[in-house]
Each structure stands twice: as C-alpha cells, then as structure tokens.
Design a protein around this nucleic acid. Structure first.
Lengths: 352, 352
DNA sequence: CGGCTGTACTTAAGCGCTTCAGTACCGTTG
DNA sequence: CAACGGTACTGAAGCGCTTAAGTACAGCCG
C-alpha cells in the first residue's frame, strides 16, 4: 500500500544522481563497477521495479503487445488450438517482460478498431494477428498505421502477410498446410481410399483455402476423380460439421474417408456416423486436423494431424520481438505437422 | 507513421491552453460550451487519442486490469468455460476502454509473482482472479499488496475471497453450486436413482469443494447411503475422467448415475461407457456440469447444467470496475445455473 | 464605486523515467 | 606544463498528460 520506490529514492539512498541510477539499472556505460553494484543493491533492497508508464512515456515503448480474437461468442473456446497458442506466445514474451494485451471482439471490423485504438493510445508496441484470411484487410491497415505485426497463419501463397511483396509488409509465421494435406492424402490413398471428402472450415481463412487448394492439387497429381476427392466448407462448428457429415454420407456414392479441419468437427462427425450405424473405420475412415484430448477420448480414437501449437506460438512471439528489435519482416515456417495414425483409419471395406 | 497528435497540437490549433483542452476532453468544468465544442472538433479532426502512458503517469491509473491463468499446458483449452468467461469480461471492460492484460503461467507461485510485478510496475489497476482455491494464498497477497481484485468463483463458505471477514478483503463473484447440485440430485433422485457418483474436478478448487460438500449434505438430507452417493476426484482432464469412470463402473455395486464436473470428462465418460457396452441412459445416466457444444454433439446428447458463463464474466468485470471506482468489496452471486435435461438421463434400469 | 462571487480560462509544477549536454577530475602526451 | 582525451558523474529538459494555484473579467450588491 505504501508508495512505490522510485529512481529518486534510490538516488538519494545511494548518494548519486537520478541519471546515474538510470544508467546503472539499464546496463548503460557511464558508471563505475562499484557504483553500479551499490545502486543495484539499493534498488534490490527497496524492491524497486520500473514504472511501466513512465518508461513508456520517455522510452516510447510500452512493453506490451496485443492480440485480438475476432470470433462470434459461440465459436469460442471449444477447440484447444487457441489457448495452446497463447501459452506458447507467453512463454517467449514473459522472458522479455513483455505483457500481452488480449481482447475478444465479435468481428473483423471491431478488430481493426481495436488496432487503431491501441496504436493511437500507444498501448502496444506491436500485435500478433490470428486467423489470417484470403481477403484480409488487416495487413494493409497495419502497414498504414505502421503498427509492427506478425501474422499467424498467413503466407505468400494464399493469405495475408506476404513477406515477399513490395516490402514494408508484416512478418508472418505459417504452417505448411500443403505438405500436411499431402501426408493425409498419402496415408488414405495408401490404405486404398479413392473417395475422400474434406470437411473444411471457414473458406475465407487463409489456411483453409490452402488446404482446399492442396487437396485439389494432390487429387489431380494422383489422377483421382475431382468429383470424389473434394472439400465441403463449414464454419468450424460442431453443428455444421455434423450436418456436412450427414449430407455427405447420404450421397449415392459416399466417400470412404473424411478429413475434418478441426478436432471438434471430427468428433461430431464420429457421433453422426455412430448414429447412422456406419462403422468407423470399418465403412468410413476419419482424420482430424489438429490433435487434442478430444481425439484421444472417443472410440475409435482419431487419427490426427498433430502439431506443436505452443511451439507455433513461441515462433510467432519470437518473430514479433525480432521485428520490434528492428529486424526486417520475413515469413517463418513452423515445425511440420505430423500425422499420427490411430484407430479411426483403415483400408476401405469394399475397394473398387 | 506520422507523429501522433498530442494535446499541445490541439491547443495550438484551437487557440487555447493545454489545460483547457484537458478539461474539455475530460468533461471537467472550467470551459464554456462553445470552447468545449471547438476543442472536441479539433481533437476529432486530428484523430487524437489519449496516450495511455502519459495518462497513467499523471493520473495514477493505467486503464488496464489483469487476469492470470495458472494451469499446466495440457489442461489448457479444451473446456469452453474460460474463453466464454473472458469474452463476457471484455464486453464490460471494453465499454469503459479498460484493457485486459492476460497471462498464462504454469502454477500458482508464478501467478503470484505476476501480480507482484504488474502491481510494482503499475501496469494494472486491478486483477481478476480465477480458479479460487480452498487454501488460497492469493487473497492474502493481494490484500498485502493493496491490489484491487475480484475473486471469481470464491465465496465465504469454502473458498477464497470472503467479503465478510475483517474488511479490506477482495470482492468476489460466485455461483451457487450448492443449489445447482441440489437440482441435479433432485432430477436424478426423482428419476429413481439411488446410487450416484460425482466425478469431481480438482479437490482444492473452491467450487469443487462446495459441490462435494453439497452432494454429501443432499444425500444425508434424503437419507441416502453415503457409500453410494459420493464424489471421486480427478484433475478435470479427459484422461482422469475416463479412468475414474472405468474404476467406478467396475465396482460390485456400480452407480446408476454419474455427474461430471465438466463437459470434457462427461464426454470421455460417455466414450468409456460405449466401449464397455454399457447403455446410456439405459444402464447409466450421465449429467455434465457446464454445457457446451461438446454436450450436444454425442449420442445421446448430454443432460447438462447450463449457465451463462459470459454473464458470469460480465458480472466479475462490473464488480472490478466498481471496486476501482471506490465501492467497498462485496460478494455477488451470479445467475443461477439451470439443469437442461437431455437424452443422457432416464430412470435406472433396475430400481431396487 | 469598492469589494465580492463566479466563470473561463492560463501558468506552472509534477508524475517517473530517459537522455543529452555539460562539468569535474584523472592520467597521458608532446 | 598546457592541451587533450577519457571516465564518472550531475543537471536539466522533455515525454503527454493532469491538476492546483493563479489571473482576468464579468456581473451583482450595498
């Protein structure tokens, strides 16, 4: 409750000027070893911590970065991806004493408004942008504002955050969805599947678009019928995932394998299959994109594309700190996702 | 990229002093209607926004509150509770332009360290504390620091954040778990169940303790055998939820109804039952505490205790803002949870 | 008309820190 | 020994805002 000690208190107690204290505590030259040590000791004794506002005001750095999550309330929170990502981000930020400002809003316009406000108020030094889209207004806005940023999930090919453009653009970290999709197709094709449906997420998200495009390319490369190897889009919710599953399984020539764009939809799909009396993996194989507890709970346990989401977050945070330290924007690829075969995939019952 | 406009710019342009501008923009008396309007217009034109650091430095308010989530990485994120809560919190905070500092750490000691640092650095004006515990060191620390706080999920009876003690304690918002548990027991007892097992979460969380205690009290009040109406504890994870289910169902006189402390464990339990060939709700009824998409996905859909989690967050944020505005600490109860019967509960097969 | 009250402002100090321009003192060097 | 350079430090300004204290002027009253 007592007044926090300031640099002035330390100065008085150590018998030096305020600036000497500032130099000493910031590892700047201009004070002798002895004095530095003495000042440090006094600061320690007094339990001094820099006042972040004062520092921000003179140093022009707020020591915080921002992250906005723009999602409708009901989509929130079921998937494990997000908090994992954040925990990775924090690990890196905390090491540098950088705080994370977090805000949930319900749409991309509100998100942009938050960026404007944060930047105008000088609340953040930079931001991490999630859910990169194919038509994304954010990189442009950020460039306009001059707000340092790292786009998570965007890349040159198909999405926000190119690092190759005209320069002055934002950094990005991305996962190789094309490669990952190829792995999934490899696995299923190897088992004998020729009719594969990808229950995709929101089509305007960059990574969804990349996955859809790669599936099409993979099918073509293997000479598979694009009628039977295709994507259907949803909003990532369990509801639409279930509905899409129901629709697809009711077709005259239903697929023998389903690839879901997240864990929640995969579990929902599994439930639909169970309800319809369709055996998994007997009559249909199921793959989930992104692993989580959800995939390991049901029977059969789901074959999943596992990736180190926290690591992805760490990479993004590292890149943002690098950008803040002045390094030029670039696109960094995360560790490759890995397919973990479990019980939900097997050869199709009746190969044709 | 251009220099942000400051109050000085506005002052020059409007032909008044800086303080006049400050008064005008903060709705303080001392400027005429005309001048006020003119200043406002200029500020608008220039796109001025207050520099939060400068304001914090003079006003002694940082305009931000903090929230620390202390959980091991693997427990993170599967349940929907947390993000819903945060989205409710934000709704209220955003209306007052208060930012939320968010940090994920891996234990309560780290959490306490974050509080100390935030407060020492004057980064936050107050904090929201989640996961109240039975033996909770945090209220004491916060009181010691003088850091305004609202404890979410704590209450006088069995948990952190009493509002009745010696004064100077933190506010709290809480849900009436006793009443909720009574509703669940009512429902199950009414269907004819006499052997009920509560698959509880972490026993040192305050709300878990309250639920366990109320189940015991309810059983006693109804004259039910405490051997057959009881709680077993877990860590909230799907793994332990599944394991506990397996263990309980293997007993010589297994329960006819299971009450799970969260949605994830309930779904895991359902999977275990399916695996063991135990029909739900035929041979066993299942209730989930907290509703989410997860509960509506599987077959049968889970009877669940639904509550307005976002509303809970709103309440907490409102209370924190009230405390910051100087109102005395108090304990506020959230809207009562409501039991939503679905397909997973039915009368027991063989009543005895 | 002198003195009073109230309104509409201005001046200046200060929040805690950084930083730039000194100043004081030392040891070298030609 | 004067001139120089370097180290260790001090002083003061300034970041953008708030706010207490001061000024100027109008209106009102006895």
């Amino acid at each position: 409750m007592a007044r926090r000690p300031t640099i002035k208190d330390i100065a008085r107690r150590a018998g030096v000027s305020e600036s000497a204290v500032s130099f000493a505590l910031n590892d700047r030259p201009g004070v002798s070893q002895d004095t530095r040590a003495r000042i440090r000791r006094v600061a320690e004794e007094l339990g001094w911590q820099p006042n972040s506002a004062a520092r921000a005001l003179s140093g022009e750095r707020s020591g915080a970065v921002g992250l906005v999550l723009a999602r409708p309330a009901q989509t929130l929170g079921v998937e494990s991806f997000f908090l994992q990502l954040v925990s990775g981000i924090q690990e890196v930020l905390a090491a540098d004493r950088v705080a994370l400002l977090f805000q949930v809003v319900d749409g991309i316009d509100a998100e942009c408004a938050v960026y404007r406000r944060w930047w105008a108020e000088r609340r953040v030094d930079g931001v991490l942008v999630v859910d990169a889209r194919t038509q994304d207004p954010r990189p442009e806005l950020l460039a306009l504002l001059g707000l340092p940023a790292v786009i998570i999930g965007g890349t040159a090919s198909g999405g926000a955050g190119s690092a190759e453009g005209t320069g002055g653009e934002a950094s990005s970290v991305w996962a190789d969805d094309a490669r990952a999709m190829a792995q999934v197709v490899d696995h299923l094709h190897g088992l004998g599947h020729r009719r594969i449906t990808h229950i995709a997420g929101l089509p305007d998200l960059a990574h969804t678009a990349r996955r859809i495009a790669s599936l099409r390319a993979d099918a073509k490369a293997r000479g598979l019928d694009p009628e039977h190897v295709r994507s259907v889009v949803t909003d990532y919710s369990d509801t639409e995932g279930a509905a899409a599953t129901r629709r697809v399984l009711a077709e005259p020539e239903p697929p023998t394998a389903l690839v879901y764009d997240n864990d929640v939809m995969a579990v929902a799909g599994l439930a639909v299959a169970a309800e319809l009396g369709i055996a998994v993996p007997g009559r249909i194989s199921v793959v989930a994109w992104d692993d989580s507890a959800l995939c390991r709970v049901p029977h059969p346990r789901l074959t999943a594309l596992v990736r180190d989401t926290a690591g992805f977050g760490r990479l993004a945070a590292e890149e943002l700190l690098a950008v803040l330290a002045g390094s030029p924007p670039r696109a960094r690829e995360s560790e490759r996702p890995r397919l973990e075969p479990r019980e939900s995939t097997a050869p199709p019952a009746a190969a044709y």
